[in-house]
Design a protein around this nucleic acid. Sequence first.
DNA 1: ACTTTGACTTGCA
DNA 2: ATGCAAGCCAAAG
Length: 110
Amino acid sequence: MPQSSDIYERIYDIVRQIPEGHVTTYGAIAQAIGSRSGARLVGWALNAVALSDRTDIPCHRVVNRLGELSGKMHFETPFVMRERLEAEGVTFSGEAVDMKKHLWVPPIAG
DNA sequence: ACTTTGACTTGCA
DNA sequence: ATGCAAGCCAAAG
């Protein structure tokens, strides 16, 4: 795939930096790449990741600002996402991840 | 080339 | 606190 969009690489690089047992939000990544409201791009990029062989990218560690697994629907199964997170030691608070414990923020340039 | 949609977030009423 | 609308950038039709 042509890396015409550098932001995609940016997003991939950040998501790849997410430590195990932690999660981040689209907004955090968006801000890290320079786009505050670029959260949608993150989702779009992740979608491309999920379909691509970019298995190196823990897209399952990316959740919305509420900690809900918004993209669970795009996985092989809508529950495999939570399964992976729990397998890493991530705890859940109902339908959302415990952001107070596993909320990780990428290094923002600036 | 133009319009619509999308794994989101923030602001105003 | 709840509800509706705007903004951002890129891809698909």
